[in-house]
Design a protein around this nucleic acid. Structure first.
Lengths: 243, 243
DNA sequence: TCAAAAGTGTTAACCATACACCCATGC
DNA sequence: GCATGGGTGTATGGTTAACACTTTTGA
């Protein structure tokens, strides 16, 4: 190979912070696997592994995710690259971290894939994690907390059809703040990026809520025309008023 | 070493997109170096190089930046990791890209350091670039365009003391949109994150403008108390009003 | 005295917030 | 009929957008 350099080389891995959300629970969930091999055998860890020499890094993330959890067709974005020299006892390992968002329907699949032990954990009740995975996870959390307010990524955590209250709970969960129902509805509906369906919740022991669908095409059209998505924490007047 | 794995390993490099800004010019600038060695000998490229086995990745970025451009004490943040298998003719090279923001005063230093050829280029008049550096640079541009509106990173591109018109020009340049002078001043001054100085511009052939300084400590205090920095593109009512 | 940029205030439209009750459904 | 969540409107105040002239300074 021409121009080949012969420096010593670090290993390169990928790690995935897989977030999931469930209407009924007050917490965001993360998918973890229990390690089958040393180091950190039996310890919980983010799904991930070594990048092959001939595959793009993102492909490696998708491949490892499927191999270890059975998940395919997920929303995946690069998060951050962690490369401190001592983060892995095997030597110099640089890890490119990704975060994934998946809708509850897919969650079954993940739990079923039991080559290794795979579990959803609430982000507020995490076990000890291998390597620097706690730091990676925390970075992922910060990222989606920051991003959810000005990019419509929240919909990736919901099923295709969802009631407005589900969307509101999602935002309340991620932002860790209560939101006003009427204002939330007004704001999101006024954006015009939700399609109102003629379908309703099933099997609920109260009035069934109307379902909506995120209209991605319309959203992208509007962005081209200068639209900014923004769904922020609603602070009270008290908090906002200065001095 | 225990648990050592013996996979084939990619090389890992860092690349830095160094942005600079100058009052007088209507464009953002990027610092490029002319490559002294193959591959892409004599081609312009982002400063960068191989990560040593025992240094953190960010340290490598700072080190390469100093070695190749003489710059130290810069604002530096990780941008994105580029790892497509064919981005480097030498073989598999994964590059962790950073972006840096530097104030005009430092620019002299950079131009003086002439181990290699180092030059500022307007982001709108770039030469052909080595490797996938054009993609990296474009990614950096998108990042600061997105980030400048809701994080006070713009100040990193200005000297310590600056007139409000300089700040406004910076925002107009990065966001590529004209801003209303009175509204801009009102908004930024109302935030309370600028310290008004008793100093004025020197050597200008018109009324000298008052200088201000970004009060970082105050900003951080306010963030703790729930303050959100936001300095967005000001759209006209026309554009905003729908249908 | 001219050129060049600094600096300054008001109005009207819009948007965000606060807030409480009735409705539909299943049990 | 009761419990559960679904669904709705209005008044207030704060924020943003639009807009033009006077001041200062140096050449």
């Amino acid at each position: 190979m021409p121009y080949t350099y012969e420096y010593p080389r670090p290993s390169v891995t990928v790690d995935c912070v897989v977030f999931g959300f469930d209407d009924k629970e007050p917490d965001l969930k993360v998918l973890l696997i229990q390690r089958a091999a040393e180091p950190f055998k039996d310890c919980w860890a983010l799904p991930g592994g070594f990048v092959d020499m001939d595959e793009p890094v993102e492909t490696a993330a998708l491949r490892e995710l499927e191999e270890e959890t059975g998940l395919t067709d997920v929303f995946l974005e690069q998060l951050y690259t962690f490369g401190n020299p001592n983060r892995d006892p095997r030597g110099r390992v640089i890890s490119v971290a990704y975060y994934a968002l998946i809708a509850p329907a897919d969650k079954q699949i993940a739990a079923a894939s039991d080559a290794q032990n795979v579990h959803w954990f609430s982000v507020n009740q995490l076990p000890p994690l291998a390597f620097d995975h706690h730091l990676i996870l925390e970075t992922g959390l910060q990222r989606i907390r920051g991003k959810v307010s000005y990019q419509p990524i929240g919909f990736e955590l919901l099923p295709e059809k969802f009631p407005l209250s589900g969307l509101q709970k999602l935002y309340e969960t991620i932002l860790e703040t209560p939101l006003d129902k009427r204002n939330f509805r007004k704001k999101i509906l006024n954006m015009g990026i939700l399609k109102e369906l003629d379908e309703f919740q099933q099997d609920v022991s109260h009035r069934a809520a109307r379902l909506y669908r995120f209209d991605k095409a319309k959203y992208e059209q509007m962005v081209k025309e200068g639209f900014y998505f923004e769904l922020k924490e609603q602070r009270t007047r008290e908090t906002k008023r200065k001095k």
